[in-house]
Simulated assay, not measured.
Amino acid sequence: MNARTDLAASSRDGHLALRRVERQQVLIERLHAAHGRLLPAGALAEQLGVSERTVARDVERLRLSGVPLEVRPGRGGGVRLAHGTRPVPVHLDLPEIAALMSSLAVLGPSVSDSAASAMRKLALAIAGG
């Protein structure tokens, strides 16, 4: 490969990774909004505009990252946030807050309502208020 091909492949891979992160963010938001109900992979795939296999890969990536998801295979199955999942207070230092803000900036701080809300809260935390 030459430099131009490498750059194009890198750009494409970066774009695909960004789309995957955006899709996974929407997936988590949909599961949160379901209030513990199982959502069928087919319905999630349709809502996200991807295949069921892509949803399955996204769910597995999220699970491996520590997101508490339950998957029930087969008829009547689906995906949901684990029962009793509640956020606990998180204490971050300035470099950790800056790292999260940098990640949100790459994703696009307004890609979703929750991303925009998180960015506002992180900015307030840095400002001390």
Results as ranks from 00 to 15, higher is better:
A45R: 06
S65D: 15
L69S: 08
G77C: 05
P68M: 08
A45N: 14
R80E: 06
D58W: 02
G49I: 02
L69G: 02
R53N: 06
R61K: 05
S51H: 10
G49C: 05
L62E: 01
R72D: 14
E46Y: 05
R57L: 12
R57W: 06
R57F: 09
R53I: 03
S51F: 04
G78N: 00
S65M: 15
A45M: 10
R75E: 15
S51Q: 12
P68A: 13
L62Y: 04
G77V: 03
V79T: 04
V67G: 02
A45V: 08
H83P: 00
L81Y: 01
G66T: 09
L48N: 11
S51V: 04
G66D: 14
L69A: 07
Q47T: 14
G74W: 02
R57A: 12
V79R: 01
V67E: 11
L62I: 02
E60N: 07
D58T: 01
R63G: 12
E70L: 06
Q47H: 12
G74Q: 08
R57M: 10
P68Q: 11
V55W: 04
G77W: 07
G77S: 06
R57N: 14
G49N: 05
V67P: 02
Q47I: 06
V55H: 01
V79E: 00
A56C: 01
G49S: 06
G66L: 08
Q47S: 15
V71T: 14
T54P: 01
G49F: 04
L62M: 10
V67T: 11
R75T: 15
A56N: 05
A45F: 07
P68T: 12
R75Y: 10
T54N: 11
G76R: 03
V50E: 05
E70K: 03
R80Y: 04
E60L: 04
R72I: 00
E60V: 01
V50Q: 11
G76P: 01
L81G: 00
G66S: 11
H83E: 15
A82P: 05
L44T: 14
A56D: 06
V59L: 06
A82V: 05
V79W: 05
E52H: 04
P73R: 12
E46I: 09
S51G: 11
H83K: 09
R53L: 09
G74K: 07
G76I: 02
